[in-house]
């Protein structure tokens, strides 16, 4: 199998979800990576450690314009005769993978969470993570958009060859007036550890204890929808059916009741810890560990214990 993996390196680094996509591809077949951006040749060669044989880099693409990116991926796919094209189902993947699928007439399995089965079907998320479907692709080649954090990455020691790749990208479809980078070090969709809080926290002035716990863990912060709606927290932190869907290794939820729409965005988490004063809160049914208690007392205590653990190690 000839596999092409698209990764976005525009902001100068290789995201974890990109490494996941490369390693996923390498388990299917000989993997070529196509990427954009200003990242150095040496860092690109390191993609060999997660399974890439070759990295094609295009330095003309200056934005995440879906039309141009799709043209680039299509040209690369044709040049290596790819039968499988892998994207991470991140914000760029969501915009570009469907375009590439339609342009190449290659069926798209979107939201994949596992490698293709021996019969070729691919397991994907459906119903906002409340179920899985097995997708069969009926076309000669296929596009797979991989859910971030669904498969792990293990780095080996290989190196990849790096080649410049040019293609006719056509005109950009839009001009970028401004880029507002999100503050904070850990991006929620990629985070392995997440501390989240809901209306039980009573007001935005109380978020210090949530941030302290997140800091002690090295976790990202998240919130329930009403909290973002009232403006206590920024919208990009809202998780759930209508917010961000996340799959961290650990999700700690304090003062969140656990409505089904909230669960839809977080029930892919490996371990869920729920802190709630109400022992009847529905969230406990979805929890691995539960603490019936007041978040205002529990969160600082938990942060202190985590710091103790970190100090020992």
């Amino acid at each position: 199998m000839s596999v092409l993996v698209y990764i976005d390196t525009l902001n100068g680094k290789i995201a974890k979800s990109a490494m996941e996509a490369v390693q996923y591809g390498s388990k299917i077949g000989t993997t070529t990576v196509i990427t954009n951006g200003s990242i150095g040749e040496r860092s690109l060669a390191e993609l060999g450690a997660v399974g890439a044989s070759k990295v094609l880099v295009n330095r003309d693409l200056a934005s995440d314009d879906a039309a141009q990116t799709a043209r680039l991926v299509k040209a690369a796919a044709e040049s290596i005769n790819a039968d499988t094209i892998v994207f991470s189902q991140d914000l760029t993947g969501k915009a570009v993978a469907p375009r590439v699928s339609a342009a190449l007439k290659a069926g798209l399995a979107s939201g994949a969470i596992a490698l293709p089965d021996s019969d070729g079907t691919i397991k994907v998320n459906v119903f906002s993570g409340k179920a899985f479907g097995k997708v069969k692709v009926n076309t000669a080649s296929r596009v797979i958009a991989l859910t971030p954090n669904a498969v792990g990455v293990e780095a080996g020691s290989g190196t990849a060859t790096v080649e410049e790749f040019s293609a006719d990208l056509g005109n950009s479809s839009y001009t970028i007036k401004e880029v507002k980078k999100q503050e904070g070090d850990i991006l929620l969709p990629e985070a392995e550890l997440v501390v989240s809080a809901g209306r039980g926290l009573k007001g935005p002035e109380n978020w210090g204890i949530v941030e302290d716990l997140a800091k002690s863990l090295g976790a990202a912060t998240a919130c329930s929808r009403p909290v973002a709606d009232i403006g206590w927290r920024p919208h990009h932190e809202h998780v759930g059916q209508t917010g961000v869907a996340i799959r961290p290794n650990l999700y700690i939820a304090a003062g969140i009741s656990g409505a089904i729409q909230h669960l839809a965005g977080v029930n892919g988490s490996k371990v869920i810890v729920v802190i709630n004063t109400d022992p009847e809160a529905p969230f406990f049914k979805a929890a691995d560990y539960g603490i019936v208690g007041d978040a205002f007392e529990v969160l600082p205590k938990l942060a202190a214990e985590i710091q103790k653990l970190k100090a020992q190690n």
Binding site: S101, K105, A106, G107, L108, A109, T121, V126, K130, A131, F132, G133, K134, V135, K136, V137, N138, T139, N267, V274, F284, K285, A286, A287, D288, Y289, G290, I291, V292, G293, D294, E297, V298, K301, L302, A304, E305, K308
Partner: peptide, 26 residues
């Protein structure tokens, strides 16, 4: 059609929640 859904499945049922005392964060 380029793709079709063959089957569906539900996630495995969660094992029961393990409760920890609020005083015992250690």
């Amino acid at each position: 059609q380029m793709v079709s859904f063959e089957t569906y499945e539900l996630p495995p049922a969660k094992s029961d929640c393990k409760y920890v005392d609020a005083e015992n964060m250690a």
